[in-house]
Nucleic acid binder design. Structure first.
Ligand SMILES: Nc1ncnc2c1ncn2[C@H]1C[C@H](O)[C@@H](COP(=O)(O)OP(=O)(O)OP(=O)(O)O)O1
Length: 496
DNA sequence: CATTATTACTAGGGCCC
DNA sequence: GGCCCTAGTAATA
């Protein structure tokens, strides 16, 4: 050991005097160099810092190629799409966020900022909304007020279905409105939670919007409305679902007046009334326009709206742009930029699955089949769920006829409550009432939905079931039991 | 060389009453 | 003729 120390010492030992002058010259030379570099920095626009990532910025003509490349990157890269022409053709870009931001803000003129985030199929993401309507067809609509009402309703449902407290300060609110079109993008930062992917977000959104319609129809004096649910899209032919009786307009669902909810409906180009929330933006690899981008050829860049109350937090942000408030805002405005840990805690993964899809298995599981194995409860007129009875009556009292409950049967195994209906024989399968056969309403309590079946031999042969529709969640025993009785495991999962 | 994913609409064939 | 199913096309975001 001592031997080695000596060797090191002699090697690094005091240099002979004759070398001192040479060192001095070198030192002066280096200092001159340093002054030169300081005056003419090589990286004149930007200094690379240790916190910065190795740059990744590569374009591809096909989305698939971009994702294949992204998979080979060992860093946190994102796929963006850039519009090439007015036909909607795109090129795809793989980049780390700081390098994307650098080129986006420094090398790209505002009119060329035609970029979209590609929300990857299967990737965890935030709750997001595309809210829009044409001013031309809705000259008197107050978009600002509508967004506030919409947010209140969504927050009510988040609390209701997932127990989450949300509000304005957790919501990135971006505006892209023009004289012709009111247009907003909302991105929710749910405290400690993200959705499993954007398909689950879509199921959640369609579910709460279908419930919204049920709320508006429920208790209406004019049940024979033109309202029609087509493929889950809220739509009616010629008028707003302003069917609320005065008595109900002041009713509140957790601070949202029912009378306000009808304001969320607008006229579209075909003259139909539709909700101003676009339900088409929840598909695989959906492009979603980003902060400071405009559609190609237009001049409506997404900027933070005057109503925005979200403040980006610089906590944990590193790199050259960590002090650029727009960059921090950009990071928080992305739908798929989520971390799985917040403050050392795992974030909840929210799911929302559609029963309509999951029940598509061709196996014939009839309500009767399930009930045959276990004892069922049965009775007449009133079941042990008076709220559900009332709801079923409201369903069969549409169209100017007064349906009645003849008999109910409860199948505990499948949590199905079936009602035999008198005096209303309307069957969706044939689009008109049956002449002699009666219909049934089946309430699936577990999934919070109902559908119609009937005793007609033709309908039975094909095991006909109408499309499932949600039952109002405030009379839904499932929702309350999930929240109160099952706190430790299933709270994140909702099947609708 | 190169948009993508999904839904709405349409036309034609087979089957039943 | 009416209804359903299917495949191909158009439309939409
Ligand atoms: N032709 C297309 N090809 C691929 N993705 C598209 C296409 N058109 C729209 N998208 C994607 C990107 C959009 O951000 C998203 C929603 O569409 P859309 O509502 O028309 O635009 P937008 O919400 O970005 O702007 P705005 O509503 O202000 O016109 O769908």
């Amino acid at each position: 050991m001592a031997d080695r120390d000596n060797k090191v010492k002699s090697f690094y030992g005091i240099a002979p005097k004759r070398y001192n002058k040479r060192w001095e010259e070198k030192k002066i030379k280096l200092e001159k160099c340093a002054i030169g570099f300081r005056q003419n920095p090589i990286l004149s626009t930007r200094k690379l810092r240790i916190d910065d990532l190795v740059p990744v910025y590569k374009t591809f003509p096909r989305q698939q190629m971009a994702f294949e490349y992204a998979r080979t990157c060992h860093q946190d890269v994102y796929v963006f799409a850039k519009e090439k022409d007015l036909q909607g053709k795109r090129i795809y870009l793989v980049a780390t966020l700081p390098h994307f931001w650098y080129n986006y803000t420094r090398n790209c003129l505002p009119e060329n900022r035609n970029y979209y985030e590609v929300i990857p199929e299967g990737a965890a993401c935030r709750l997001y909304f595309d809210l829009e309507f044409k001013t031309e067809f809705n000259p008197d609509k107050d978009g600002m007020k509508m967004v506030d009402i919409f947010i209140k309703y969504v927050c009510y449902q988040l609390k209701n279905m997932y127990g989450l407290e949300c509000g304005r300060k957790f919501i990135v609110d971006l505006d892209s409105s023009t004289a012709a079109k009111f247009s907003r993008h909302l991105i929710f930062h749910l405290p400690g939670a993200v959705f499993k992917d954007n398909i689950h977000v879509g199921t959640f959104v369609r579910h709460i919007l279908a419930l919204l319609q049920t709320k508006l129809e429920y208790g209406s004096e004019q049940p024979d409305s033109q309202l029609a649910e087509r493929g889950g899209i809220l739509c009616c032919n010629d008028r707003s679902p302003a069917l609320i009786h005065e008595d109900n307009a002041e009713k509140r669902v957790d601070g949202v007046r029912l009378g306000e909810l009808k304001e969320l409906f607008v006229k579209d180009e075909k003259g139909s009334f539709v909700i101003f929330c676009d339900q088409g933006v929840y598909t695989k690899n959906r492009n979603f326009r980003i902060f400071k981008s405009t559609k190609i050829g237009k001049k409506s860049h997404l900027v933070f709206s005057s109503q925005n109350m979200f403040k980006p937090s610089p906590k944990g942000r590193k790199g050259s742009f960590s002090k650029d408030p727009d960059y921090l805002f950009f990071l928080d405005s992305l739908v798929s930029n989520v971390s799985m840990q917040v403050d050392g805690k795992d974030v909840r993964i929210l799911t929302c699955e559609s029963c309509v899809n999951s029940c598509k298995t061709p196996s014939k599981r009839t309500a009767q089949g399930i009930g045959s194995q276990v004892p069922t409860q049965t009775g007449y007129e009133h079941s042990s769920y008076p709220d559900i009875d009332r709801f079923v009556l409201s369903v069969v009292n549409r169209g100017g006829v007064q349906g009645e409950i003849r008999k109910w049967v409860y199948f505990p195994q499948g949590k199905l409550l079936t009602y035999d209906i008198l005096k209303n024989q309307w069957c969706e399968n044939i689009g008109r009432p049956h002449k002699s056969n009666h219909i049934m309403i089946v309430v699936d309590i577990k999934h919070g939905v109902y559908y119609q079946k009937c005793h007609d031999p033709d309908c039975r042969r094909i095991d006909y079931r109408s499309p499932e529709r949600p039952i109002p969640e405030d009379i839904d025993p499932l929702m309350s039991s999930q929240r109160t009785g099952n706190s430790h495991c299933q709270t994140d999962h909702v099947c609708v």
